[in-house]
């Protein structure tokens, strides 16, 4: 009976991911889109848990739900939302686009299922210690570069949104 838990949880999460992501693209109300995006992130974190990557799942929730979604909600609140949402959808090109998507998706599908699962080399324990060991060992230099990138992004964002002193408020 416990054999079936993993596929069932996977199926629920898969429906959550695909459904919520499709709704992000299709839905008109942008605040709902932002929340559905957060839901997609949570489902992806659930998939990480299913794969046994606990630490990555927690980082995913911490960064995507706790920080990025809130930032995007800020963006939503500071900009006006007008209802001219779509450019291409449901126009003449839609059937053509469907054909193109099918042409791309088919090889991807075949390619995806051509991978054979390796026998479980991983112990099903936590991934925190191996992750930290390789992050601060082999990948220490990229890690430092990433921190510089974050610093640059922070300074850049502050410079971009800062108002000049003499500029009057709109």
């Amino acid at each position: 009976m416990f054999d079936l838990i993993e596929p069932i949880v996977f199926a629920i999460l898969a429906v959550g991911i695909v459904g919520a992501a499709a709704a992000v693209v299709l839905i008109d109300r942008i605040t709902s889109a932002a929340l559905l995006m957060a839901f997609t992130f949570l489902c992806v974190a659930g998939m990480f848990l299913l794969l046994g990557a606990e630490a990555v799942a927690l980082f995913q929730v911490l960064i995507y739900v706790g920080a990025i979604t809130v930032l995007i909600l800020y963006g939503v609140m500071f900009t006006p939302q007008r209802h001219r949402a779509y450019a291409l959808f449901f126009q003449k090109q839609t059937p053509l686009a469907g054909v193109v998507v099918a042409l791309i998706a088919l090889p991807v599908l075949v390619f995806s299922f051509s991978f054979k699962d390796a026998p479980d080399l991983q112990p099903r324990g936590g991934d925190l210690i191996p992750l930290a060991t390789s992050l601060f060992g082999d990948y220490a230099f990229p890690f430092e570069v990433a921190s510089v990138l974050l610093l640059a992004a922070m300074v850049g964002a502050i410079v971009l949104v800062r108002r000049d002193e003499d500029e009057e408020l709109p």
């Binding site: 606990e54 630490a55 927690l58 980082f59 929730v61 911490l62 739900v65 706790g66 936590g126 210690i129």
Partner: peptide, 13 residues
């Protein structure tokens, strides 16, 4: 081994 990380994550939500 991730208890503390778990707590921080939930706190951020």
């Amino acid at each position: 081994n991730i208890g503390l990380l778990y707590l921080t994550t939930l706190g951020s939500m």
